[in-house]
Design a protein around this nucleic acid. Structure first.
Lengths: 141, 141
DNA sequence: GTCCCTGCAAACGGTTTGCACCCGG
DNA sequence: CCGGGTGCAAACCGTTTGCAGGGAC
């Protein structure tokens, strides 16, 4: 009955999705641990609470949530996809040493729309992925 | 003995890589067909010239070329990786209808370095992926 | 009661790897 | 001739799917 739980219930309802305990648990994990978790990490967390929860359902739930726009899926060059409860918009910084993803506060890129238009393309969305060494890793140089 | 072939030979040499016929064929295909091919497409093209060429070698070669910086690997949300002979720098536009990747002429994003620095991160590289409907697909609306 | 969702296990696609042979330097 | 590269097949990993049973509405 926390505020977070109410928000999740409402989000699922608004999206016209059934509120199953598995979907709820996935959303809750993503919102409480905004660490861009992998499907496997989410599975482990949800499975810890409900040992009957299966990988297939985690994948199905994630796909449904992504489809509904409640979750964003990030694909990196390496490893599996990462998931992100789509709260605020932001860019991503991928650390090549530790593999973690750090958030970069959102800022718009002004010339993007204009450039897409040059090719007669219709822009719907874009994102920037930065790569390098994050603050924590760089500190230990 | 074309100009292109000499360039490939030199690039491999500069990278300290042996000039095997398979690596050469991979590079040649990527430079002649700058369409952001998948590993499978590259395999089919190379295998057509040399039916003994195997998938494993294509993957090994691509990894070696990427490692040497001669080829860029792009990973999209869907399907396998695409490869790009790293000639000129550019951004990418992914068409959600036809799945093709169009090039967007390079332009720098000015506030990127500054934003990365805010988080104490050391920026090494970045790229922008645009998504939407490309000119060809949009024309048939 | 109706469908959608779940759990299970098997299949899948893309990619990597172990090993013996081969060829470029 | 030496060491890295190749071909083959099997393994691998992340993800999807077919099916039978169960829970949300």
């Amino acid at each position: 009955v926390t505020n977070l739980q109410l928000r999740i219930d409402r989000a699922l309802e608004d999206a016209g999705m059934r509120r199953t305990s598995q979907r709820f648990a996935v959303m809750q994990y993503l919102m409480e641990q905004p660490v861009h978790a992998s499907a496997e990490e989410i599975f482990e967390a949800v499975n810890r609470l409900d040992p009957r929860a299966s990988r297939a359902t985690i994948y199905n739930s994630l796909n449904a949530l992504v489809h509904a726009g409640l979750v964003r899926r990030l694909s990196l060059d390496v490893g599996g996809a990462r998931y992100d409860a789509a709260l605020d918009r932001h860019h991503h910084f991928f650390c090549e040493r530790c593999g973690n993803i750090r958030d970069i506060p959102w800022f718009p890129v002004s010339r993007i729309a204009e450039r897409a238009a040059l090719g007669n393309h219709t822009l719907r969305d874009y994102d920037i992925t930065l790569r390098g060494i994050c603050g924590s890793c760089g500190a230990s140089d």
